[in-house]
Amino acid sequence: MKDAAREAGETIPGKHGGMQMNEILYEEAEGVARITLNRPESGNAFNQPMADALLEVALKVGHDPDIRVVTLTGAGRMFCVGGDVGDFAKNSDKIGVFLAHLAGTLHQSLAQFSMMKKPLITLVNGPAAGAGMSVAIGGDFVLAAPEASFTAAYCAIGLTPDGGMTWTLPRLIGLRQAQDIILSNRRVGAEEAVGLGMATRMVSGDLAAAGAELAATLKDRAIQTMGQARWLLNTGMTESYVAQMDRELQSIVAAGESAEGREGVSAFLARREPDFKGAN
């Protein structure tokens, strides 16, 4: 990307059927990447072009060393209402292939976000349903506006969850609560979502400003170390206690030998603020 675009922000172009698409807005400044789902007239519902664009930007932010923190939100009143059901109907004669392509592309995007060595902040500005809920709760930090809500939505239209919901949700809130939310399809408001552990906190004021403030704080932290801790947290639920301690042992040794670890210890002993960006 051009330096001017990097500073000023830009729309990520992608190609679908030979046409430019603008379903994802992207801005990057001072180490923070800001991604916005941009189909507000459709509740930011996922169609194939938007899924393709999200994968493109997920690959970029995951592998660009200049990007230290990623935020993701929706344009307009909605965060994301899930898949575009109108597109489902238009492709009813080949729905299996259609869903495999759409969900498969989305899954690649979410896998990239989950594996990147930097934190993801989701700013849930409104209703998040279906795959939109899967995306929303996938952040390391989930900031929710008072008008945000979370609805599984799948069973209401005869479909099953995707976007990693059946992996993420039980780990956040427990199996019994996840069963209730997915099978009953009940709507969870922002305050309840925080209480259950689906969201980090509710933001009554300017959600974008709160997200920018958090991102600005995180970008000066030990990002490589944070990325490794992120990996440990994501894998710890599936490992035995002893096996996970072995992973932690290997990780803390590597962290101690890293530039960030050396800088952090030196700064602590010198009673100064660490320069983790300089260390990298």
Score class of each variant (00 low, 15 high):
residue 9 G to M: 06
residue 10 E to R: 14
residue 11 T to A: 10
residue 12 I to D: 06
residue 13 P to F: 07
residue 22 N to T: 13
residue 22 N to A: 14
residue 23 E to A: 15
residue 23 E to T: 15
residue 33 A to S: 01
residue 36 T to L: 02
residue 36 T to S: 11
residue 37 L to F: 08
residue 39 R to F: 00
residue 43 G to K: 08
residue 51 A to I: 04
residue 51 A to R: 01
residue 52 D to Q: 12
residue 57 V to A: 03
residue 59 L to V: 10
residue 66 D to H: 13
residue 71 T to F: 05
residue 74 G to S: 06
residue 75 A to H: 02
residue 77 R to N: 12
residue 81 V to M: 14
residue 81 V to D: 06
residue 84 D to F: 01
residue 86 G to E: 08
residue 87 D to R: 09
residue 88 F to N: 11
residue 95 I to R: 09
residue 96 G to D: 15
residue 97 V to E: 15
residue 99 L to G: 05
residue 100 A to H: 12
residue 104 G to E: 08
residue 107 H to Y: 10
residue 109 S to K: 07
residue 113 F to Q: 04
residue 114 S to K: 10
residue 118 K to P: 03
residue 119 P to R: 03
residue 119 P to G: 06
residue 121 I to S: 01
residue 121 I to H: 01
residue 131 A to N: 11
residue 136 A to I: 02
residue 137 I to A: 01
residue 145 A to P: 00
residue 145 A to M: 01
residue 147 E to I: 10
residue 151 T to M: 11
residue 152 A to T: 02
residue 154 Y to I: 09
residue 158 G to D: 06
residue 159 L to I: 10
residue 166 T to L: 12
residue 167 W to F: 13
residue 170 P to W: 03
residue 172 L to V: 05
residue 178 A to S: 15
residue 179 Q to R: 12
residue 180 D to L: 09
residue 182 I to M: 09
residue 185 N to V: 12
residue 185 N to Q: 12
residue 187 R to C: 14
residue 190 A to E: 06
residue 190 A to K: 00
residue 191 E to C: 07
residue 193 A to F: 00
residue 196 L to F: 08
residue 197 G to K: 02
residue 200 T to G: 02
residue 203 V to K: 00
residue 203 V to I: 13
residue 206 D to P: 05
residue 207 L to H: 03
residue 207 L to G: 05
residue 210 A to Q: 06
residue 212 A to V: 03
residue 216 A to W: 02
residue 219 K to G: 00
residue 220 D to M: 06
residue 223 I to M: 03
residue 229 A to E: 12
residue 232 L to D: 08
residue 233 L to A: 15
residue 234 N to R: 13
residue 236 G to I: 01
residue 236 G to A: 09
residue 237 M to V: 10
residue 240 S to N: 13
residue 245 M to L: 13
residue 247 R to D: 11
residue 252 I to W: 07
residue 257 E to H: 11
residue 258 S to Q: 04
residue 262 R to Y: 05
residue 267 A to D: 00
residue 268 F to L: 14
residue 268 F to N: 14
residue 269 L to A: 13
residue 270 A to V: 04
residue 272 R to N: 08
residue 273 E to H: 12
residue 273 E to I: 12
residue 274 P to N: 11
residue 275 D to Y: 03
